[in-house]
């Protein structure tokens, strides 16, 4: 399917619940509300016309006003891919886990939890793994994070 067909097909099945993000990326990019993530994921994973089996990437983003979680899914049978993201408020950064649909989400979500502080409800093992065991300085990839012994790069 081309990008336009993909967009039309997905919007048809999820009308009103998701929003298309206009940008000039080669792939469709949707905004999915946090409550719909699991239903939407289940649909694009199982639908025979989409078969988006590969969770290629899941990353957190701190936009200084809110958190975003970006999902990047690819289908090897149909050779297409889509992006979608969800927006979470700062004070309640919670979204349902998609680990039941894509087991590959396991570490991606753990990482987003560790580095951004986004909680994935239902994740079986939200434990620290990238940072040292005795880490007590919060979530370093947040934009407002200030580290104890970070030497800033000198501006030239």
């Amino acid at each position: 399917m081309t990008k336009e067909e993909l967009i039309a097909y997905i919007q048809e099945n999820f009308s009103g619940k998701i929003e298309l993000i206009e940008n000039d990326m080669a792939e469709p990019y949707f905004l999915v509300p946090a409550g719909e993530i699991v239903a939407f994921s289940r649909f694009i994973h199982d639908d025979t016309k989409l078969l988006l089996h590969f969770l290629m990437n899941l990353s957190g983003v701190d936009t200084k006003e809110q958190f975003e979680v970006v999902y990047n899914i690819c289908s090897y049978r149909h050779k297409h891919r889509i992006f979608f993201k969800t927006v979470l408020p700062y004070d309640k950064a919670q979204v349902d886990t998609v680990i039941g649909i894509w087991p590959a989400a396991n570490w991606y979500e753990r990482e987003a939890w560790e580095l951004f502080g986004i909680t994935f409800v239902g994740h079986p093992n939200l434990k620290r793994f990238l940072l040292p065991d005795d880490w007590d300085q919060g979530h370093p990839l947040r934009k407002d994070w200030v580290g104890r012994d970070v030497i800033p790069f000198p501006e030239v």
């Binding site: 940072l131 040292p132 970070v150």
Partner: peptide, 14 residues
């Protein structure tokens, strides 16, 4: 890196 942090001297928290 082993001598003094190398390219990760600045800005790295780890």
């Amino acid at each position: 890196c082993a001598i003094g942090g190398g390219p990760f001297y600045y800005d790295s928290y780890a």
